[in-house]
């Protein structure tokens, strides 16, 4: 079940004054024969011991791996799905021993909670929501938000888990008159939630009252932006977006992420920074993750690129290895590691 591997990853030089450093510390191979779709890291408690575990998702199985000594991993639980394939893992911060998954084909059809029976330790799953689900995100304080339905019956719903993962409360947020495609928490403001919409608006809610506070239109240069991170500073809202539909431009290079600043009072906003690929590298944003001031993206070229959002440039670039494109990348929520996966089930863990 586990493979140990320690080697230094080859890193092509980037146009950086302070190059990032990626060290391959571990590799694990998902045993399932189906296509690998996602990875995450979370705390799991067994016999009174909380451990930083890895969760891997294939189309029809989600596995939990516990750490052994010297960066080896042991598969301890696997949840199986027979009808609808897994699309993504949805970690819920502040909840131990429970992880959510989104299932569907092209769009999300179900959200399920995965956990283990306290009685016999067997794998259990619970259907939390089914229907035409557009977006889902785990939030701090054991909350899960999702948007579902079509224009006339669009709903934005928050579920709150009890400390042990059970008993969930439900609350609805006032829906905007358009579909919400992505969500992001506002760092340091636990009652604020952002969403991006199909019409290129950013909406902001008060999670305590459910009020829709503002709808803010952003630059039409990029359609269907994905919101990854937001923080409020000096009365302004800073938002990190990616643009999966952006066209490559010769003058700007390839903008993969963008930092914009919004005045929530006036809704006026302006682009602050474009995070482009190093010269000579091509590709658009396919999939990515932002944590603190680090942004990682899988590109259409099959490579992974990492940006320091404060420095403003690409600090590490990981070409496809070996002859396999990268297909997903996540920052570990339990430490400062980068989890990178390939469709064939290989997951690589890098220290950054």
């Amino acid at each position: 079940h586990s493979i140990e591997q320690t080697e230094i990853a080859d890193l092509p030089a980037c146009d950086s004054l302070n190059p990032g450093y990626l060290q391959l510390v571990s590799k694990l191979k998902n045993p399932s024969g189906s296509c690998s779709v996602d990875v995450s890291a979370m705390w799991w408690e067994r016999a009174g011991l909380k451990e930083p575990c890895i969760i891997t998702a294939c189309e029809y199985a989600v596995s939990l791996w516990k750490p052994l000594d010297t960066w080896q991993w042991k598969n301890i639980y696997t949840w199986h799905f027979t009808e609808v394939p897994v699309l993504q893992i949805v970690p819920v911060p502040d909840v131990c021993n429970l992880v959510c998954v989104a299932l569907g084909n092209l769009e999300i059809r179900e959200i399920r909670a995965l956990f283990c029976s306290p009685d016999d330790g067997s794998e259990k799953q619970l259907l939390l929501k089914s229907g035409n689900i557009k977006a889902v995100l785990g939030l701090t304080k054991r909350r899960l938000v999702n948007s579902s339905g079509t224009l006339c019956d669009h709903q934005v719903e928050i579920m709150t888990f009890a400390e042990d993962g059970g008993n969930k409360e439900k609350q609805f947020l006032m829906p905007p008159e358009e579909t919400v495609l992505t969500f992001a928490e506002v760092q340091g403001m636990q009652e604020a939630l952002l969403g991006t919409t199909v019409m290129n608006n950013i909406v902001i809610w008060n999670l305590k009252t459910g009020q829709l506070l503002k709808k803010m239109h952003i630059d039409d240069s990029y359609q269907a932006s994905v919101c990854h991170k937001a923080y409020s500073e000096m009365g302004l809202l800073f938002v990190v977006l990616s643009h999966p539909c952006a066209k490559e431009s010769e003058s700007l290079g390839s903008p993969v992420f963008q930092l914009i600043v919004i005045n929530p009072k006036t809704t006026l906003n302006v682009g602050v920074m474009l995070y482009c690929l190093p010269q000579g590298q091509a590709g658009r944003f396919l999939e990515g993750d932002v944590k603190d001031h680090c942004a990682a993206a899988v590109l259409t070229s099959g490579a992974i690129a990492i940006w320091d959002l404060l420095l403003g440039h690409c600090t590490a670039f990981l070409p496809p290895v070996p002859d396999q494109n990268w297909s997903f990348v996540k920052w570990s929520g339990t430490d400062s590691h980068l989890l990178a996966g390939q469709k064939d089930g290989n997951i690589f863990i890098y220290r950054y």
Partner: peptide, 23 residues
């Protein structure tokens, strides 16, 4: 970018918008 392009700024924007928005 120029802060002036963004209009009047309030440090307390979240509470102010919450008191202005429909319940």
């Amino acid at each position: 970018c120029n802060k002036a392009d963004l209009g009047p700024i309030s440090l307390n924007w979240f509470d102010e918008l919450s008191s202005e928005a429909p319940p």
